[in-house]
């Protein structure tokens, strides 16, 4: 479904990604862990081309997307993205946040967009909040609206960039539940997170990244219980406490 081949990315003198290669099968949920500054967010942004890789190839559903002649706007509709800081459009209500892409990017008529948005908001458990503005919602509710907004574009895969890191502890559960349900329904997902419970229960594989490289790859058991690499071991021991 998603294939990344030898991706390199520099920000000025900083070498952020040093040759990343991996595959994600359809309906797989991959969790990426790693210390801050290891390039996890940049890797996700390279997949939907919010950041353009310096070299290397990105394939989505068999299509080589980071080459001339492919519109970035089209690529980004194929993969939904959820951000650490939610980034809901502050001037729009919850339901308008979900419908904006439908009406303005996909050109779907307004009433059909509303109908679809209602279904999605119900799916993330926020049917009652459709007319609330982002500033009137809790962090967990905002993040669930953000998930509905990404799902509205009917993406083939979803990218989650630390979706629960900015949340108060009591709201983390509700967001993770929505994500786990998505994974069960067969959505292809790449999740950057440090929620070990989520990683063990939902992830089909875990990638450990450090300093712009994938250091180790394996099931939750491999990574958390018997890490092979020293760096993985020291990182895991820190986050498992």
């Amino acid at each position: 479904m998603i294939r990344v081949e030898d991706i390199q990315k520099h920000f000025g003198a900083l070498h952020v990604l040093r040759g990343i290669t991996f595959d994600v099968q359809k309906a797989e949920a991959i969790v990426i862990i790693g210390p801050s500054g290891s390039g996890k967010s940049t890797l996700l942004r390279c997949i939907n081309l919010l950041v353009e890789p310096d070299s290397g190839k990105v394939f989505i559903d068999g299509v080589h997307v980071n080459r001339h002649g492919i519109r970035h706007e089209w690529v980004r509709q194929q993969v939904g993205m959820v951000f650490q800081s939610f980034n809901l459009f502050t001037h729009l209500t919850a339901i308008e946040n979900v419908t904006l892409g439908l009406t303005r990017v996909k050109g779907i008529p307004h009433d059909q967009a509303i109908e679809k948005a209602r279904k999605l908001l119900a799916r993330v458990g926020l049917a009652a909040k459709e007319n609330a503005y982002p500033a009137e919602l809790s962090g967990g509710q905002q993040q669930r609206v953000a998930i509905a907004r990404a799902l509205a574009m009917d993406p083939k895969a979803m990218l989650f960039d630390e979706p629960t890191s900015a949340l108060d502890p009591e709201y983390i559960r509700e967001v993770l539940d929505v994500m786990a349900a998505l994974a069960r329904e067969g959505m292809t997902m790449i999740v950057v997170t440090h929620e070990m419970g989520f990683a063990s229960n939902v992830a089909s594989r875990i990638l450990f990244m450090d300093a712009g490289k994938i250091i180790e790859e394996g099931t939750a058991e491999d990574i958390f219980q018997n890490p092979k690499e020293d760096r993985t071991r020291s990182f895991v021991s820190k986050i498992l406490r």
Partner: peptide, 20 residues
């Protein structure tokens, strides 16, 4: 982040300016 979110759901630069 507002621009990034708009771009992530497929808005062009011009449309992100206009609607977000």
């Amino acid at each position: 982040g507002q621009v990034e979110a708009a771009r992530a759901i497929g808005f062009s630069r011009l449309k992100a300016m206009r609607y977000v």
